[in-house]
Design a binder for these strands. Structure first.
Length: 452
DNA sequence: TCTGGGGTCCTAGGACCC
DNA sequence: TCTGGGGTCCTAGGACCC
């Protein structure tokens, strides 16, 4: 049996833990750059605010109803998530951290100790609430897809007390009739439209779709598995997360700029900063990367801009995998050069690291001098392949101790600070808005909550 | 004026290998 | 007129997830 524990309105709930005056009031949290609504309290949902609504379109409505608005505060949400996941790890035999606010639990054999899985689910839900302040719902079922479905029904029906256990065939059959096909895990907009056209309206209808049809119209083997899982036959196993943290197969960092940029140096500054961040994540995960992608995008909403809105360039590193920011950056610069169209106004940029593996696995000694980066001297040539693990470790240690961005590569620092000037750095031209960011209550000493 | 960010998995086609 | 079979690797793109 699988459990799926999902935090309710996670970002809003995190804000409320530290500022309980927002309980009972409509609250929303905005995406980066204060662009779109990405988390809503129940009261905000009741006002008709939708996930993804652009802020500027609903500004009036928010004001009219005195909705509390927050910029996203990932330092806070990430830390609260870690606390939730740590507790789950202490309590359930195996945990797969699925996202910042969700985890699958392996509940096999737990009836013995807790009477029923329903009882266990209620205990773990109460435990998360008392230890972190975060409200959750739990779905329990024989497959992951059904556990997601059960969780959804528990969320929509408060009288269930936050838990739904699909312990027998009758209950499962009933649950399938309660959920529209578009709300099934794995059915997005495109598939929902196709299914509607084929007369498939509920999860129950979808569970009866022939295997061949699912294969043909729902993404091949993915669709076939989905249907089987709805029928109660598990196709997806649990992939336990070590010590409650996610280990990724790819890592990326991208941002929409605070304003449109058309100077190469500005966009290079952004790419450098994003690459530095991605490489930090890479080292934190204890991996190296073999493949690097850089992309730059135009404004896809502008009427005078034609597709393609985004261009990307990917490179398999000729020197093999590395976790060295300086090495990666020299390749990123070359990729950006390849993509650059002078006179174009750019809106967003991003960096992706792929082909992740632990250090030492695929170390490649170069037969020919790597190009780029063109090593400037013998010492450079030596470090090009191996990187500078000690330098990177020092960088990470300093930034961990004194705060993010304390030590950066010059290329990632906006112009006025270039050259290692000490003091408060200028805001970079690519940096976006965050007008309503709450304090980092749990990760910055200066931001600690003061109780009087 | 203002429209997010970070992931996963799968497929298809081309280049290349023996 | 006729032009193999079985692979791998890489890239791009689509669909989905939270």
């Amino acid at each position: 049996m699988y459990g799926l524990l999902d935090c309710n309105n996670f970002y809003v709930s995190c804000e409320r833990v530290f500022q309980p005056r927002y309980e009972g009031r409509p609250v929303v949290v905005l995406s980066n750059n204060d662009g779109n609504i990405i988390s809503r309290s129940a009261e905000a949902k009741a006002l008709g605010l939708r996930m993804g609504d652009p802020y500027f379109q609903v500004k009036e409505l928010l004001h009219q109803h005195d909705v509390a608005v927050f910029s996203s505060n990932y330092a806070l949400y990430g830390d609260m998530s870690r606390r939730v996941m740590w507790y789950l790890g202490q309590t359930a035999p195996a945990v797969e951290v699925y996202s910042i606010d969700e985890a699958f639990l392996d509940l096999a054999g737990l009836e013995k100790y807790h009477g029923s899985l329903d009882t266990f689910a209620r205990k773990i839900r109460a435990g998360v609430k008392s230890r972190t302040g975060i409200p959750t719902c739990v779905g329990v079922a024989p497959t992951k897809t059904l556990a997601k479905l059960a969780n959804r029904i528990a969320k929509k029906n408060p009288d269930l007390g936050g838990v739904l256990y699909l312990d027998n065939a009758e209950r499962r059959a009933w649950a399938l009739t309660q959920v529209e096909v578009g709300d099934v895990w794995g059915i997005g907009r495109q598939y929902a439209a196709k299914l509607a056209a084929a007369g498939v309206g509920t999860a129950a209808d979808l569970a009866r779709v022939p295997d061949a049809w699912a294969r043909k119209h729902l993404g091949g083997v993915v669709g076939a598995r989905l249907v089987q899982e709805l029928q109660g036959r598990p196709c997806a196993g649990l992939h336990p997360s070590e010590d409650g943290t996610l280990s990724r197969q790819s890592l990326s960092c991208s941002r929409t700029f605070g304003r449109p940029l058309s100077a190469f140096s500005d966009v290079l500054g952004a790419v450098s900063a994003f690459l530095s961040r991605a490489a930090e994540k890479l080292r934190a995960q204890g991996d190296t990367a073999h493949v690097l992608t850089v992309y730059i995008s135009k404004n896809r909403f502008a009427t005078n801009v034609q597709p393609p809105f985004s261009r990307s360039a990917t490179l398999t590193l000729p020197i093999g995998p590395t976790a060295d920011t300086t090495v990666l950056l020299s390749y990123a610069r070359a990729l950006l050069n390849r993509l650059w169209e002078p006179g174009t106004v750019y809106h967003k940029a991003g960096v992706v690291l792929d082909g992740l593996e632990p250090p030492g696995v695929g170390q490649q000694l170069t037969l020919f001098a790597p190009t780029p980066p063109e090593p400037e001297n013998k010492r450079e040539e030596k470090t090009a392949a191996t990187g500078r693990p000690a330098l990177m470790a020092s960088l990470d240690a300093l930034n961990s101790r004194f705060g993010k961005g304390t030590v950066r590569l010059a290329a990632a620092v906006p112009a006025p600070g270039r050259g290692g000037v000490v003091g408060k750095a200028h805001a970079a031209p690519w940096e976006g808005k965050a007008q309503w960011r709450s304090p980092a209550f749990t990760t910055r000493l200066e931001d600690l909550l003061i109780v009087q």
